[in-house]
């Protein structure tokens, strides 16, 4: 039997490595995560230390990104801000993915009135723009890190319900589900042991794109003053603080904005690259 050595063309991983977008995206995002993790060692100054002697200093060798109104080093604040912005994005997306995927699989697998009720609820949630939704929740719950994560996670849930439900609907009719039933497997085992691994690729692609959205939502909420309370630095709050002095010191807002932009582009490159790598139809 030579079948042991037969492989079905390049694997998703092989295709992924050949995609330059995915590699660049990964480098940017991984780099940013490393910056966040090693912030205490990388930041040249204490992000909250005020130096009244040099307020609104232009970028120089001493302060690469300049200083803000209170004389705080903007580079250090952006580096420390990466911690909060990235971790809020990652934790809230993870929560949204887990909850949304679980609900979506249950809805798609069982169908019937349960599916109709869940789909209707998800559609209602999806019809709110994410920002309005997050805004409402933060306004009602109050601005704290926990509530912010909760609000962003809630906006992610319906998107993952929808994609998990759709993929499960297609999987449910596959013959291997019948094979599981005749082996006496429970619905729970079939849903999460057999259906979930089959729809995982689509979930991962959407999750990488949603991570970008979550980080953007956090920044936007911070920008309009509903983010993590000051003086904690997040990318959105640095942009906001710099906004008052935009004409005199544009670097205050520009530098954190560039950080946000880089992560957005990186995550979208990863998402697109993963989609191409896992979609057999797009295989070269």
């Amino acid at each position: 039997m030579s079948a042991a050595t037969v492989t079905g063309g390049p694997t998703a991983w092989q295709r992924a490595r050949r995609s330059p977008g995915l590699v660049i995206g990964l480098m940017v995002v991984v780099g940013m995560v490393l910056v966040a993790v090693f912030a205490p060692w990388l930041a040249p100054y204490d992000p909250d230390e005020q130096d009244v002697v040099v307020p609104l200093a232009a970028p120089s060798a001493e302060h690469l990104f300049g200083t803000d109104y209170f004389g705080r080093d903007v580079l250090s604040r952006v580096i420390w801000g990466a911690r909060i912005s990235l971790s809020i994005g990652i934790v809230s997306t993870a929560a949204g993915v887990i909850v949304g995927t679980a609900i979506g699989i249950v809805a798609g697998y069982f169908g019937g009135w349960l599916d109709r009720a869940i789909t209707a609820a998800a559609d209602v949630l999806l019809s709110f723009p994410q920002l309005i939704m997050g805004l409402l929740l933060v306004a009602v719950l109050g601005a704290s890190t926990g509530n912010l994560i909760l609000a962003i996670a809630v906006t992610a849930v319906p998107a993952f319900i929808r994609i998990a439900r759709g993929s499960t609907l297609a999987m449910r009719e596959r013959d291997f589900v019948d094979s599981c039933r005749v082996l006496g497997f429970s619905n729970l085992r079939i849903m999460f042991g057999h259906v979930l691994p089959n729809i995982m690729d689509e979930i991962v692609v959407l999750a990488s794109l949603w991570l970008a959205t979550a980080i953007r939502t956090e920044s936007t909420l911070a920008f309009i003053g509903l983010g993590v309370p000051p003086p904690t630095a997040t990318w959105g709050s640095i942009v906001r603080e710099g906004f008052d002095n935009l004409l005199d010191a544009p670097w205050l807002s520009l530098c954190p904005s560039l950080a946000i932009l880089a992560v957005m582009i990186g995550l979208n490159l990863i998402g697109d690259g993963l989609r191409d790598a896992t979609d057999p139809k797009a295989a070269p």
């Binding site: 596959r174 013959d175 291997f176 019948d178 094979s179 599981c180 057999h194 691994p197 089959n198 995982m200």
Partner: peptide, 12 residues
């Protein structure tokens, strides 16, 4: 079953 091609889970 009849269809050995599809009766196995492709990702396990």
């Amino acid at each position: 079953f009849q269809e050995p091609m599809t009766s196995l889970n492709p990702v396990l």
